[in-house]
Amino acid sequence: MNRLRLKFSKHGPIKFLGHLDVMRYFQKAIRRAEIDIKYSEGFSPHQVISFAQPLSVGATSDGEYMDMTVNSMTSVSDVMDKLNAVMNEGIKITAIRELGEHDEKAMTAAYAAKYRICFRERLKPDFDWINEFEKYLRQDKLPAMKKTKSGEKEIDMKPMIFEYSLDAENECAELLLSMSSAATLKPALLFGAFFNSLGKELSTNALDVHRIDIYRYVEDGNNKYTEPFITDDINTRFMLNG
């Protein structure tokens, strides 16, 4: 039995698939690829797979993750090739890492997510938003009203923004935002509050969200950092202790 973590991208029309439909898509693809997937016990057995974090409908991604358990396999690259052979172009497995016994599920291990945010062609703001956004982000506190189960509460978004860079030429922002069970900041909330601070309304579906990757939390001696789930590149690390 092997536990595997798959990294996949989501592009093109596939971005309109809701999270449940992505799950259904994978369940069928795993069958088509004849992967020796592990099934749960019981009268209606289901495949042992789970996803890191749902991506909102309309967003693309280069860094989605799914964990799955197989009874047997020849190699991780064989699993990857078999799956990619039966996938649509829009979804592609880009990496697989075998997990250790004590590795947490992707769902619980997620700590942050990196996004690239632009505006959709027909809904671009009529002002220099990059410039305004830079000023906005420099404030000490970034209050916003977050919807909770019991209503709304005021939160400060500032500590949930780990890093950002703005690209005036391409009119887009790259943001590393908190995404864990303790604290999650969604791009729509941040941009909604930013627009409100200017007395403007962010129109629905205006944001063109691309998730670059999902990050996990690592403690290594005195170092605390967050880095993509699957990476060989030390430069992708974001140090959390200064």
Binding site: G12, N88, G90, R120, T204
Partner: peptide
């Protein structure tokens, strides 16, 4: 795969 949809994203999302 056909990446050129007849409808713009904002319509499809609405």
């Amino acid at each position: 795969m056909n990446f050129n949809l007849a409808l713009p994203d904002d319509i499809l999302l609405s």
